[in-house]
Design a protein around this nucleic acid. Structure first.
Lengths: 218, 218
DNA sequence: GTCTATATACGGATAGAC
DNA sequence: GTCTATCCGTATATAGAC
């Protein structure tokens, strides 16, 4: 009975502690600026143990990077591939999911974006993300709406860039909100919560032809 | 006659060559991943000269960082503080200016955003950006439109985040366009050129009450 | 001003005791 | 499995010749 319980709930295994610490440090500072010593200290263990469990900084990083991305994309694919929800609902879900994720882990977007640059080996076309996305119900519904003449802009790329930009950009430009807008953490989160409903309305106003978007705002 | 001409036009001074190389390397890889040796090599000079001219990697970086940001913000303040242009024209100018800048130097946005994180010493509240922005003609015109009831969303922060997000986000998420959208460089730039006119129209559709926005799209 | 050679520090990784 | 001590490559920075 104690055999399985102890390493889960009571307190994490050493391996897990290192992973948690590594995630925090890597996501905050990026690969190049992170020191294995800092990770070890953050984990409350010794530097040697890090190599004992994960062989090298690089290997540990790849692990963290990979499951950060899986985590990030699941947020997307989970909402976008449901046959029982409408296109509009999917947009609302996506905005809410991503904003929740980013509020909880604000470093993730910039981490992913900046670590992908200069890794053309493409850690992430190992991920099935590309194909999963392109064959998703969401994309099919978009194309149906275009065919039905309900949408202004037939280019899916513009649509996706705008949607993700509206969701994610505030988090990666956080310092500007702090300095130019003078926002503290609570005010910033308040603004992000508002955006869960504002973004779907904005998307409608931008792209949908029967424009009921503006009444939805405010 | 040759005294002043030679170090400007014919071929750049050593100091200038180092700065050009440093800008390229730092912007591409970020501070932590950049090696002074690479910068020296890129500049076609010796490592010792780098320290001779700039004392240290850190000092050189601060220089580059500072004038990258000045450059970046001038793009903004230049367009936003003109009494003779309308609010709508300013949006068009801003989109066009920034897209031009990003097409030419695609690494700048991610560079600024990721290097600002973890520099709470705030290299950039030395910049007058904050005050320049808040007292700009653009902001005054925005507030007038809000007061006149022409705009849906009274919060300037939402407006600015959306506008900058629409402009900048595609550039920092470039790898996604490449992999998910399958875009090559030419196709990507084509899309960005389109956005110079699309973005102002989208902004109108999102925020302006007398909605003539949708007719403007396409 | 520009180079070569070198000092010095730091960070990743391992050896080996317990 | 976990620690201490240490090795060794690499990166910044400087000394000193030209």
């Amino acid at each position: 009975m104690a055999k399985k319980a102890e390493n889960e709930a009571i307190d994490a295994s050493t391996e897990e502690k290192i992973k948690v610490a590594a995630r925090a440090v890597f996501q905050k500072k990026g690969y190049a600026a992170s020191r294995t010593r800092d990770i070890a200290q953050e984990a409350g263990i010794n530097l040697a143990l890090l190599n004992y469990y994960f062989r090298s900084k690089e290997k540990l990083f790849e692990l963290i990077m990979f499951d950060t991305m899986v985590n990030f994309f699941q947020c997307m694919t989970g909402a976008l591939d449901d046959k029982n929800t409408s296109f509009e609902i999917k947009i609302e879900l996506l905005a809410a999911n991503y904003i929740n994720l980013c509020v909880e882990f604000p470093d993730i977007p910039l981490f992913i974006l900046s670590e992908i640059r200069n890794r053309p080996e493409n850690l992430f076309d190992k991920l099935p993300a590309r194909h999963l996305f392109r064959s998703s119900v969401f994309v099919r519904q978009f194309q149906e709406k275009v065919a039905a003449g309900e949408i202004n802009e037939p280019d899916l790329l513009h649509f996706v860039m705008n949607m993700l930009g509206l969701i994610i950009f505030p988090f990666i430009s956080r310092p500007f909100s702090r300095i130019i807008g003078g926002l503290n953490d609570a005010q910033f989160e308040q603004l992000m919560q508002e955006r869960k409903t504002l973004i779907p309305a904005w998307i409608k106003a931008m792209f949908f032809k029967e424009n009921t978007g503006n009444e939805l705002i405010k």
